[in-house]
Nucleic acid binder design. Sequence first.
DNA 1: TCAGTGACTCCCC
DNA 2: CGGGGAGCCACTG
Length: 140
Amino acid sequence: MRSSTAGKARKVKGEGETFATQVLEVVRKIPRGKVLTYGQVAALVGSPRAARIVGGVLFRLGKKSKVPWQRVLNARGMLSTYRVGCGEEQKKRLQAEGLRFNRQEAIELERYQWWPTARQLKAWRVDDDLAASIHQRFGW
DNA sequence: TCAGTGACTCCCC
DNA sequence: CGGGGAGCCACTG
């Protein structure tokens, strides 16, 4: 059996997929000018409480990576990356995509948060139960 | 194999 | 409304 820890993951893992590869698969699809929260990404790959791990995966991306890591931020619409030294870089990239930050250094999630289409969810093999639980949790 | 870790989140005061 | 604290869980060495 493949390492789907705790048996809580409801999203089916394809051959050779890990939590990390699934995270990157999701992040790569975030449209320019839109964002997802760490928790949202975690939920989409079937581990709704693994938000911290999403951050860890993105942290270990190489500088040359083409994955749009700047499009992932925390549940308050703020950047968690200042503490690891790339907050300014993330802010700069997001501003270049048209996002505006308020006085609290936050963006309006209601305005910029991305919700994948049903077609996209299917492509990621997110089953109906998981999709339903995500809808409920995030009021999507 | 296993304990330590943390780009999170939520709850409580 | 703000900050402190405690779960959380896949990755890492």
